[in-house]
Amino acid sequence: MGQTARVSAVSWIAALSLAAWLWLLLGQGFFWRTDVRLPPRELPGAWPDVCVVVPARDEAAVLPASLPSLLAQDYPGRAEVFLVDDGSSDGTGDLARALARRHGGLPLTVSSPGEPPAGWTGKLWAVRHGVGLARARAPEYLLLTDADIAHAPDSLRQLVAAAHTGGLDVVSQMARLRVASAWERLVVPAFVYFFAQLYPFRWIGRSGTRTAAAAGGCVLLRTEAAERARIPDAIRHAVIDDVALARAVKRGGGRVWLGLADRVDSVRPYPRLHDLWRMVARSAYAQLRHNPLVLAGTVAGLTLVYLVPPLAVVVGPAAGSPAAAGFGAAAWLMMAGTYVPMLRYYRQPLWLAPLLPFTAFLYLLMTVDSAVQHYRGRGAAWKGRTYARPDAVPDEG
């Protein structure tokens, strides 16, 4: 009787995992597809003014590969770059000025806002300072981009054309992250895959839905929408500021679009597992609203969806349940199949697809570690600053 119960339990768990994958495949906004790119674009009759705001803290290592690409934007209208040196100790501001003198291009203003006051994250305090300077030029659009993002020469032009054509208040592209080391190949495509699973790009672009997200490395924001949503003041304590920005804009009636980039790339290296671990763990628990019950549900969900299929393939025959092995194999095959488009987007070998359960297990550990660091008072530590217990972003509680 006990053996039969165990076999039945293994089979039911494997079947539940397969059912979850069937739902994810068909009912989660086709998150696994990678064809959400910049929407159709028409050239404006008159190109609007744009100000580019770049928050930068200790970015001297990546600026030579990123800042010249911004200064070299082939934009028909008036555009200007504001780099905000957020208390760097590596000469970021001086290097930015030297690069502007060497490469020319769009006008560059380098400034520093000083240390952020209580209740502000450093990045958003820098963004607030840059946006304040930009508003003196009365631009129609703001491009918020990170210091490690390299843009193709027509990037700004294409973003503005997409926003103009679609009447969009936010046009955001998820920059193609660097994939060079073995750990980057294993972890980075999965990072974007998991993000799209949480925030299906097709749902983000629909009016009337609550799903909203942006990718902080490249966000074109209509100035009027920013003022209406009180950006960045309304999200000043947000650790995951890009998602918070999109939610604030959409909550205020704005239209938001997010998709994958073709010619916007991150130049920041994450060569070691430790580097990738810190990138994920610093904000993973904030994503779960610092809620232990949500954490427990997330761990259970990751286990059911990603770890049960390969375990069922191994444990099923040993437990005398070929049905469990069959369910697990079908779920594993479905999982790997949905991962293939992302691997192709990142130009990675397809044999990495069956390894997704192992990568998911790493993300599970990173998420748990994020919670542990939070309760130790270390919170979202990044570049010498620690946000021990940041308040929940509005609409996240």
Score class of each variant (00 low, 15 high):
Gly29Phe: 02
Ala19Met: 13
Ala9Asn: 01
Trp21Cys: 03
Arg6Phe: 11
Trp32Thr: 04
Asp35Asn: 15
Val10Arg: 00
Trp32Glu: 05
Ser11Met: 06
Gln3Val: 13
Ile13Ser: 02
Phe30Glu: 06
Ser17Ala: 15
Ala19Tyr: 07
Thr34Cys: 15
Phe31Tyr: 14
Leu26Pro: 00
Trp32Ser: 09
Gly27Ile: 09
Ser11Pro: 00
Trp32Val: 03
Gln3Ser: 13
Phe31Ser: 03
Trp32Cys: 04
Leu24Ser: 10
Trp32Asn: 05
Gln3Phe: 10
Gly29Met: 04
Ala15Asp: 04
Val36His: 08
Trp21Asn: 04
Arg33Asn: 08
Val36Asp: 07
Phe31Glu: 02
Arg33Tyr: 05
Ile13Thr: 13
Val7Gln: 14
Gly29Cys: 08
Thr34Val: 15
Ala20His: 09
Ala9Ile: 08
Asp35Val: 08
Ser11Lys: 02
Val36Arg: 11
Ala19Lys: 06
Ala5Arg: 10
Ser11Tyr: 00
Arg6Tyr: 07
Ile13Arg: 02
Leu22Ile: 15
Ser11Gln: 07
Gly27Phe: 08
Ala14Trp: 01
Leu16His: 04
Phe30Asp: 07
Leu16Met: 13
Ile13Gly: 01
Trp32Asp: 03
Ala5Pro: 00
Leu18Val: 06
Val7Thr: 12
Asp35Cys: 09
Ala14Asn: 03
Leu24Asn: 10
Asp35Leu: 08
Val7Trp: 04
Asp35Glu: 13
Gly27Tyr: 09
Leu24Tyr: 11
Gly29Arg: 01
Leu26Tyr: 11
Arg33Ile: 03
Val36Lys: 05
Trp32Met: 07
Thr4Phe: 05
Trp12Met: 14
Trp12Lys: 09
Trp12Ser: 13
Phe31Cys: 04
Ser8Ala: 15
Gly29His: 02
Gly29Ala: 09
Ala15Gly: 15
